[in-house]
């Protein structure tokens, strides 16, 4: 069953060129779909549209069968959470505890339940010992994990990671990706929006955007190897696949090495 259905959606920022142009795509429940695109390809606009932070000029968006509109937007936000790019600009609470509580307070969860969820999800993202810490005492990666806990605590079915690792150091990035894997295994629909190929390798499907249009949407396996499509969207092949491409072009036939390179690319 599709959890997110986007049909012919277009969006233009005030007085600017078209950010999204007639985009259609659907995402299944429990799927991991990466949205890849260059800076300015419209990928972040798409995430804002899905949770109703922006309103499309045309087209429809459905989440769990509910059509997004002013009257349903609150229902939709209960189902879809977003981790944004800048760790500092989404930390609302004065402490980690307050920040995880923020969404729960908005959903009017009763206090005993709230406390239970805060502790449970803080443990889940390994931030339990930091519950009373203030944001300036945390690293970017830790702040992003708090953001993840805040969304998990709201029990959303879908989490969009809108370039959530772009401002992190390699360690912070690795930890966030680790949580993507865990969550997906547990049934959460994961939608990373990124230009880092390493973040896309784990996904079931990849949607490549270019200048506001869907350039290609396919199984990861096909997109990861598609040099032409990736390069058209300012992206690059993972190194092992670049080598595989080189072998193909130069007529070097070595199936076992190719298989090895494929596995190598999947393991980062």
């Amino acid at each position: 069953m599709s959890v997110i259905e986007i049909e012919n959606v277009s969006f233009t920022y005030h007085g600017d060129k078209r950010a999204l142009d007639n985009v259609s795509l659907s995402i299944e429940k429990g799927e991991w779909v990466s949205i890849l695109g260059h800076n300015g390809s419209g990928k972040s606009t798409l995430s804002k549209l899905i949770v109703g932070l922006l309103k499309p000029q045309s087209g429809t968006i459905r989440v769990d069968g509910i059509t997004l509109s002013a009257s349903t937007v609150r229902d939709i936000r209960k189902r879809v959470g977003i981790v944004f790019q800048n760790p500092d600009n989404q930390f609302v609470g004065v402490t980690v505890r307050d920040d995880i509580a923020f969404g729960l307070e908005n959903l009017q969860i009763e206090r005993p339940e709230m406390i239970e969820r805060i502790e449970h999800y803080a443990k889940k993202v390994d931030m339990y010992p930091y519950l009373n810490k203030e944001p300036h005492a945390l690293s970017g990666g830790q702040k992003q994990r708090v953001a993840i806990a805040g969304i998990l605590a709201m029990k959303t079915d879908v989490i969009i990671f809108d370039e959530a690792t772009a401002m992190l150091d390699p360690e912070g990035r690795e930890r966030v990706m680790e949580f993507m894997r865990t969550l997906n295994r547990e049934g959460t629909t994961i939608i990373p929006i990124t230009h880092e190929m390493k973040e896309a390798v784990m996904s079931d499907r990849i949607v490549v955007l270019k200048d506001g249009k869907v350039l290609k949407a396919d199984k990861s396996e096909n997109i990861l190897k598609d040099k032409e499509t990736l390069e058209r969207s300012n992206l690059e092949l993972l190194l092992p696949l670049e080598i595989m491409h080189y072998m193909n072009e130069n007529g070097i036939d070595n199936p076992s090495l190719k298989e090895f390179l494929w596995q190598l690319s999947l393991n980062g």
């Binding site: 932070l53 600009n89 609302v92 969404g103 729960l104 908005n106």
Partner: peptide
């Protein structure tokens, strides 16, 4: 970020 986490100004909230 606040809006995406279901904050609506003026709406009743529970408190931690």
């Amino acid at each position: 970020a606040m809006e995406a986490r279901s904050f609506v100004p003026g709406q009743p909230r529970t408190r931690l």
